[in-house]
Design a protein around this nucleic acid. Structure first.
Length: 427
RNA sequence: GUGGGCGUAGCUCAGUUGGUUAGAGCGCCAGGUUGUGGUCCUGGAGGUCGCGGGUUCGAUCCCCGUCGCUCACCCCA
């Protein structure tokens, strides 16, 4: 009647996470969550889609991410939504909506969606771990979030990570600088790269971000934003830099670092993984956004935060050759059963209730087959139940690391199973 | 959106200068004298050779298209 269905695949630029990779993910997230808690952050979850306006205000109508990379859709009531392209805007929207007491310190793990051609370290759905602090412009907070990210990278083993930092000034002093920059670019437009020779006028700051040699040459010889910011912004920036120094965190001033979202002001920073043999070597970044809450309809509230790309961090770890397990997860017991008796399920549950990680074989396969599964499961101990044990109301406990089972195998009463295993596991 | 490379078993890949039943290793399953895993031996299952069309007596192989993967540009995590 119907053709055999072509198997479905995950959409372009998306990935299933399973096998050994899932353990790395779980470990990474666990490490991040632990350090976020140590810094006084709480988990905040927001919907995966928002009114498009949240992102329009947040990341800017002129940004590439907004113009050509957003997953925008209409629901059945013709409301216009978008899958979130980044984490900050949603968190700030939630802040504005709920008015929590400040300073409000939120951490999150979220998928982020961007409609772009996938390549190494760049996906249509990727995951970001991040934090945001709302309600203070104290430079100590800038330092704190940077320290958190920095410490996270270190604790997962990354060593070849560079921190770039810059200040965007605030809207007034930045506007002054943009005029100066525009004048400079006009005088040098013939030396810009093909693309920016035409469009430098629209968004001069973008030219600073261009990686092509002509633009790099022109902009590196031109006026720098950091030299044009006002005294207050400069003082703020100096305190951030001093704070990082006090903590022994190395950073490099990167005067042309201009991040892609329009909401940033003052501090911006980015972490670069040098071992990463790819164009996407930025493994995290963030900055301060003191106008965003207002843009989203709230009271003026300062904010600062960062996002870390989970996939890129994993790729960076691989690039550095780090293969240490972030999270040790292994079974304690594997139950082998050739009887199919209900008693076995009871024993398995008792073990689990006692906090002993236990799995078992199914389908009443042969003893040999079940032992193979037990071996591959990585469990420390095998518990065998055959007709003999069943009749004697006992079980056999076997050390899966030992070569010679005859020597080390032991028989215990079923009632002693949990206490015996618990005891063995403490050794 | 643009360009390059690639698409043969679950995985990693051979192979056919176009010619009968398409191979290996790993993995999986079953055995190796009837209660025991990690080594070893034997056997087995598993493939529309991405999909569609064209050329040809004949295509997995050549050509075109398409889809997918991948890398790069743009931009970003």
């Amino acid at each position: 009647m119907s053709e055999p269905a072509a198997p479905f695949k995950a959409p372009i630029g998306t990935h299933d996470v399973l096998g050994p990779a899932s353990a790395s993910w779980e470990g990474l997230v666990t490490v991040f969550a632990q350090s976020a808690y140590r810094y006084g952050f709480s988990l905040v979850m927001t919907p995966i889609f928002e009114d498009v306006g949240v992102f329009l205000r947040g990341i800017g109508e002129e940004s590439d991410v907004f113009k050509k990379e957003m997953y925008v859709f209409e629901d059945r009531s013709e409301r216009r939504y978008a899958l979130r392209p980044e984490g900050t805007a949603s968190i700030v929207r939630a802040f504005v909506q709920h008015r929590p007491t400040t300073p409000w310190k939120a951490w999150y793990l979220t998928p982020a969606f961007r409609y772009e051609r996938p390549q190494k370290g760049r996906y249509r759905q990727h995951y970001q771990l991040g934090v945001e602090v709302l309600g203070t412009d104290d430079p100590a907070v800038d330092v704190e979030v940077i320290a958190l990210a920095h410490g996270f990278y270190r604790s997962i083993g990354l060593r070849q990570v560079r921190l770039l930092i810059n200040s965007m000034g605030h809207d007034v002093c930045r506007a002054t600088y943009v005029k100066v920059l525009r004048k400079y670019l006009k005088a040098n437009q013939d030396h810009l790269c093909d693309e920016h020779r035409e469009i430098w006028r629209e968004n001069p700051l973008r030219v600073l971000d261009c990686k092509r040699a002509p633009c790099v040459k022109v902009t590196s010889e031109g006026p720098m934003l950091i030299d044009h910011i006002c005294d207050d912004c400069r003082a703020h920036f100096d305190r951030v830099v001093a704070g990082l120094e006090a903590l022994g965190i190395e950073s490099a001033l990167s005067p042309r670092l201009v991040r892609g979202f329009d909401y940033y002001n003052r501090t911006t920073f980015e972490f670069i993984a040098d071992a990463f043999d790819s164009a996407q070597n930025s493994i995290g970044g963030g900055g301060r956004y003191d106008k965003l809450a207002e843009e989203l309809g709230g009271k003026p509230t300062s904010g600062v935060g960062f996002g870390i790309g989970v996939e890129r961090v994993l790729l960076a770890r691989a690039a550095e050759g780090i293969d240490t397990e972030l999270l040790k997860r292994s079974l304690d017991v594997f139950v082998v059963d050739t009887t199919g008796d209900a008693t076995v399920s009871v024993l398995v549950e008792r073990l689990r209730e006692a906090g002993i990680a236990t799995d078992r074989a199914y389908d009443q396969r042969s003893l040999k087959a079940q032992m193979k599964v037990a071996d591959k499961s990585g469990a420390r101990w095998a518990v065998l139940v055959g007709p003999e044990e069943l009749a004697a109301v006992e079980v056999t406990i076997r050390d899966l690391r030992s070569q010679d089972f005859e020597q080390t195998q032991l028989r215990v009463a079923q009632s002693e199973l949990v206490s015996t295993v618990a005891n063995l596991l403490t050794k």
